[in-house]
């Protein structure tokens, strides 16, 4: 789309911000007015950070998570950390999912980021995903367990089922993340579908 040459700077900036997902024209305009009131240099700092983003970030050579470009290091901080349990890998769809696991502090193993899920409706097949690098990691037989932590929706399930079939011949334990009630939430407020699934997946105590 060609940019209309002389244009109101406020509208021009707002239009750019409105390209973000989840940001409409109204919010974008509010942000622009906030920027106009902000101290000198704020916008420049932001612009510089945004410009540096693409060149400053790469995929980890092992797990494919996004990581800051560092000299003499092609791995992300998790893969480069010598104290992690390298026998267990949690497989997720998106880099954000790694963040969720890390924030919990409950998992000491490694990750693998697929960058999506199988979805013929969106033209995404196994070849689009980082599956080959995952198979590379399993080759030497060191990894004992693969936890498939793709989303519990149709696409995430299809991806997990695809991987489970693909890995059937490889001597590695493959598990799927359980789903049920959110912990700490009150049952009273759970939605019907989650409750139904939690009931179905009940287990003896």
């Amino acid at each position: 789309m060609a940019e209309a040459p002389p244009q109101d700077p406020i509208r021009r900036a707002a239009r750019q911000l409105a390209r973000f997902p989840g940001i409409g024209e109204k919010t974008a305009t509010r942000l622009v007015y906030w920027l106009l009131r902000a101290p000198q240099g704020t916008a420049a700092e932001m612009a510089e950070a945004l410009v540096a983003l693409k060149d400053g970030v790469r995929e980890c050579s092992v797990c494919c998570d996004l990581t800051a470009v560092r000299p003499n290091e092609t791995r992300c901080a998790v893969c480069a950390n010598g104290s992690r349990d390298t026998r267990t890998i949690v497989v997720v769809e998106h880099p954000q999912d790694v963040g969720a696991f890390e924030k919990s502090g409950e998992f000491r193993g490694l990750y693998h980021v697929l960058h999506g899920a199988i979805s013929p409706l969106d033209g995404v097949g196994p070849d689009t995903l980082r599956i080959r690098p995952l198979l590379e990691r399993l080759r030497d037989g060191h990894v004992q367990e693969l936890v498939l932590a793709t989303d519990p929706d149709v696409e995430g399930d299809a991806t997990a089922l695809y991987l489970a079939r693909l890995l059937a011949g490889i001597p590695v334990k493959v598990t799927r993340l359980a789903h049920g009630l959110p912990v700490g939430a009150e049952i009273e407020y759970a939605d019907a579908a989650s409750l139904a699934r939690a009931l179905e997946n009940r287990r003896p105590v």
């Binding site: 199988i118 013929p120 097949g125 196994p126 399930d157 299809a158 991806t159 089922l161 695809y162 079939r165």
Partner: peptide, 17 residues
């Protein structure tokens, strides 16, 4: 998937689900 004529391995996984 049928329209895109995807590989059998992908159809297998989709059929499972």
């Amino acid at each position: 998937a049928l329209r895109a004529n995807v590989a059998d391995a992908v159809l297998d996984a989709i059929d499972d689900g």
